[in-house]
Amino acid sequence: MKKIISILVRNKPGVLSHVAGLVTRRAYNVESIAAGPTEDRKITRITLVVSGDEKVLEQVVRQIQKLVDVIKVDGIPHESAMTGELALITVSLPRERKSELMNLVSLLGMTVKTIEKDSITLQVAGSAQRVDSAINGLSPFTIKSMARTGLVALPLGQNGEGADPFP
């Protein structure tokens, strides 16, 4: 089972080390971790995607809540979260297949970041599913390198606040 954990933390040096360290120390499985500022400069939001059984996930949430810099933790089930992710993908581009690729790019809803002599860098943003399908859709071509941000999330319908931490 997968769970999205949305964490508001004090924007202090080392806070990401504290969160990441906790997760590895207790041997939880992390799918992704993403951090960035919120509407308040003093507060950072960290989005963790972890997998494990219900009991493990409940422990993850409680152990994170215990960290001094953590202000609030929400464990969000996948179905009640707004999620988004961004990926940059560099694909090698044989000259003769350029139009084939460009068709695919528009079909998959991607945008072009840069074009080099024999490669092209694309961007896709949206749900994790959308990013996955874009990457799969590029399989006829050779992906040279790729970077994904990991999922960021907000709980649905509550303006990001007040979700039950132990749903």
């Binding site: 040096p13 080392g14 080390s17 504290h18 360290g21 906790l22 120390r25 001094v68």
Partner: peptide, 16 residues
């Protein structure tokens, strides 16, 4: 020691 002591303290500081 800041990094080393993260898992064995309740909290820690590096005062810059």
């Amino acid at each position: 020691i800041y990094g080393i002591s993260i898992p064995i303290t309740k909290y820690n500081y590096l005062v810059k």
